[in-house]
């Protein structure tokens, strides 16, 4: 089981890598979204806000997200560190994403562009 701090660290690594990627920022400049990341086995909630192509992170859950990413703490930390792709846990039911299917594909694609295969 990962800790809340580990999830926070993984999300910081993810957002730092995202914000360093100019291509991603340009691609997402019109994609303003609020993404809540929620762990199922530890008390851990974060909100990533994409605005004008830039992503920011804060602790706690937003009341009105566009997307909610739900999984166990280990899976969340591994995904946001880029140690595993989101596809495998999504297809075996470990990872749940609430939101539109198009947003889900974009989130997956962002992770692909940041971490590669």
């Amino acid at each position: 089981m990962a800790t809340h701090e580990e999830i926070t660290d993984s999300l910081k690594v993810f957002t730092d890598n995202y914000n360093k990627n100019e291509r991603l920022k340009i691609m997402n400049r019109d994609w303003d979204r609020v993404v809540v990341v929620k762990a199922t086995d530890v008390e851990s909630r974060h909100t990533m806000t994409l605005k004008d192509g830039v992503v920011s992170l804060k602790e706690g859950a937003s009341d009105n997200p566009d997307l909610t990413v739900i999984s166990d703490s280990e899976t969340l930390a591994d995904i946001f560190y880029g140690d595993i792709t989101p596809t495998e846990p999504y297809n075996n039911g470990t990872l749940r994403v609430m939101g539109s299917e198009d947003d889900l594909i974009r989130l997956d694609f962002i992770s692909l562009l940041i971490w590669g295969e």
């Binding site: 609020v34 009341d63 009105n64 909610t68």
Partner: peptide, 8 residues
Amino acid sequence: MQLKRVLT
């Protein structure tokens, strides 16, 4: 927590 876009 409520999703912004909710289908009827």
